[in-house]
Structure formats: structure tokens, C-alpha cells
Design a binder for these strands. Structure first.
Length: 223
DNA sequence: ACATTAATTGTGT
DNA sequence: ACACAATTAATGT
């Protein structure tokens, strides 16, 4: 073996590993023919608000964070996307050819399979498993969104902050983050001072350890 | 290794 | 929310 792998072989492998539920051989063949592998570094804006979608990203590895922004530039974290998932907003835009209402940013270095957006509609009609995938994506995101709304509407900032840290840990499979208080404040649409004080509280409670540019989640201490 | 600068964090009002 | 102090990281010399 000389280790040389064509892009198509690579797509095929990733598809089998991460999206085995897209099961029709014809569909797989079409994806292999159409998709390109793209490695994207942390922090890259994949989809921005107001922009048209050209490709559907099938997330192979890493985490994408999806956020909303108002006219004044205030941000709010909506949810995370993980491997084997895709972006519901993107799919929704593809169906109606409308601009994105959210921004998607690579939370870590990520790898995606990029599929031309027009395949969305075609495959929906042609392949049951693709349709299921799309429907399940919507359902999952809808539930996730309800949870987010509950948090915003009914929970105090201290609870939201803890939830934010736990969600982040789950999404990235890490219990320590390289992040600043300011960045958290942006995600939660709060102010840096409030976040700093609440983080300090959490540290006193023994839930986290703080240092500059770094937060570590500690195991839950029994009260 | 040291000094300078910039960014981050802490705190009182 | 704002102002400012204190601390720490990044950078250049």
C-alpha cells in the first residue's frame, strides 16, 4: 500500500463511519460523487447571518456552535452541533432558497462533508433515509431549541451559566475550556462583570476552577 | 531575561 | 452599567 487515497475513497470511508444511516447504495454513490471533504480551523464562521447557503455541511468531527444575533450585534448561543449531525437552519434555507437566520462558527477544528445545496430537495424526494435524516434533524433541533428557550425564559443567569458550562463540556467532550469571561457573556447575552461574579460563586462552591483564559469543570461535590 | 504592552479579571459604586 | 485596579499573558528587545 502506498497510502494514497483519493478524495472519493475518503468520502466513502467518512460516510460509512459517521452516516451509516444514509443507507441506500444509490444515495451513497451520489454523495460520494458530489461531496468534498473540508477541514476547517477553530473559530471559522461557516455560515453567517444574511448569507445564502451554497453547501450543506455534514459534520464528520468536531463541534459547531450556532448563534443568533440582533440588530445591535448582541449574540446568543442557540445550540451545538456534533458529529453525524447537520444544521437544521441550513436545510430550511435550502428548501426555500432563503438567507440564513443564524451564524454557525467552528467551536473546534472540524471536518465536514460539503454537499451542494440543490441536492437537498432532490434527495428528499428520492431517498427515504435522507428524508428521515432531515426530519430527525428538525426534530432534534426543535427539542434542543425548546430547552434553550426554557433556560432563557425561566432560569436565572446563574443556572444558565452552569448549564452553559455543562452543555459545552458535553459538546466538546472536555471538562476544561480555553475561554474568557467576555466570550461567555457574549454567548449568554449578558455582561462580563455578571459572568465574572457568577463564575467566582461557582468556584467558591467547588464546581469549577478558574484561571486566566481557562475554566475547568470539577466533579460534582456532594453538598 | 527583562521591560513593555495589551488583554483579562476583580471589585466598589 | 461604569470606572478603575490588579493580575496575567503575549510580545519585542
Amino acid at each position: 500500500m502506498d497510502g494514497f487515497v483519493t478524495e472519493q475513497q475518503q468520502v466513502e470511508t467518512l460516510l460509512r463511519e459517521r452516516f451509516p444511516f444514509l443507507s441506500e447504495p444509490d444515495l451513497q454513490a451520489e454523495i460520494i460523487a458530489q461531496a468534498t471533504v473540508r477541514d476547517i480551523p477553530e473559530g471559522t464562521v461557516i455560515i453567517d447571518i444574511g448569507s445564502y447557503i451554497h453547501q450543506i455541511p455534514l459534520l464528520v468531527s468536531g463541534t459547531i456552535k450556532v448563534l443568533r444575533e440582533d440588530e445591535q450585534g448582541n449574540e446568543l448561543l442557540l445550540y451545538y452541533l456534533n458529529a453525524s449531525e447537520t444544521c437544521a437552519m441550513t436545510l430550511s434555507c435550502c428548501m426555500k432558497t432563503e438567507v440564513s437566520g443564524v451564524r454557525a462558527v467552528a467551536e473546534e477544528d472540524i471536518r465536514i462533508l460539503a454537499v451542494p445545496y440543490r441536492m437537498m430537495d432532490i434527495w428528499m424526494h428520492k431517498y427515504q433515509s435522507w428524508k428521515n435524516f432531515v426530519m430527525q434533524t428538525f426534530q432534534l433541533r426543535f427539542e434542543e431549541l425548546l430547552r434553550t428557550i426554557d433556560n432563557i425564559a425561566f432560569k436565572k443567569m446563574d443556572e444558565r451559566l452552569l448549564q452553559y458550562l455543562l452543555d459545552k463540556a458535553e459538546a466538546t467532550h472536555r471538562n476544561d475550556f480555553h475561554i474568557t469571561h467576555h466570550e461567555i457573556a457574549q454567548d449568554l447575552n449578558s455582561s462580563r462583570e455578571v459572568i465574572s461574579r457568577l463564575l467566582k460563586q461557582l468556584e467558591r462552591l467547588g464546581r469549577i476552577r478558574l484561571s486566566r483564559n481557562h475554566i475547568e469543570l470539577l466533579q460534582d461535590q456532594p453538598v
